[in-house]
């Protein structure tokens, strides 16, 4: 019995190796795909204006094929901008979270007018655009977004402003959610982008 197990060992090992290789390949492929479809924060600045720190940034919302298809078919997509401000407390301690804000925008296609509508979920303000590109470009242009009042910041401390853009999968219709959770096509997210402010 033991002998036969030992005899089978190479087969097992081959199978395991094969599985491992497949997993690695799949993971790398996924990673490539992810990179291809990722959102990107292309730059920006945090400026002090009238005692308020304003964020100006440009985000490239490059949609994956699946997301674009869904949008064209009337599925509203929700984008979220995650804004975090942390006060640096040195390497020995966690940074203090000063601000944590999620800005949500919903983009959807209006078939009658053949226009794309961009709605700010919090305020309900809607703008319409003739094309998808125009809508996404407008969405990706953040101009004068107020971050913090200068008064709220401590003198001499150093602050980090983090920004990330992502597609909010949880807001998708339920059937699509299942697919979205499993498919890299739907994992659309940017890297965290950092700005430092030292008042």
């Amino acid at each position: 019995m033991r002998g036969s197990w030992r005899y089978n060992a190479p087969a097992w090992r081959q199978l395991l190796l094969g599985l491992l290789a497949a997993l690695l390949l799949g993971a790398s492929a996924q990673a490539q795909e992810l990179r291809a479809h990722n959102f990107r924060i292309e730059g920006g600045e945090v400026v002090l204006s009238d005692g308020v720190y304003l964020l100006n940034a440009r985000i490239d919302f490059r949609l994956s094929e699946a997301a674009e298809d869904a949008l064209d078919n009337g599925v509203p997509l929700t984008f979220v901008l995650q804004l975090e401000v942390e006060r640096n407390r040195g390497w020995w301690w966690f940074d203090a979270n000063v601000l944590s804000r999620n800005l949500r925008y919903r983009v959807r296609y209006h078939a009658l007018s053949t226009r794309y509508l961009v709605t700010n979920v919090e305020s309900g303000e809607t703008r319409s655009f003739t094309s998808k590109q125009a809508a996404l470009a407008a969405l990706g242009t953040i101009a004068g977004l107020p971050v913090l009042e200068a008064q709220a910041l401590q003198e001499g401390a150093s602050y980090e402003v983090w920004l990330r853009a992502a597609l909010d999968i949880d807001e998708l219709p339920a059937p699509l959610k299942t697919v979205a959770y499993m498919s890299p096509q739907w994992r659309l997210v940017s890297e965290w982008h950092l700005w430092r402010i030292e008042p």
Binding site: A70, N73, G74, A111, P173
Partner: peptide
């Protein structure tokens, strides 16, 4: 129209 369109699109994922 939008609803129907969405539904049609979601047929496959559903």
């Amino acid at each position: 129209y939008a609803d129907y369109r969405e539904l049609t699109y979601l047929r496959e994922p559903l």
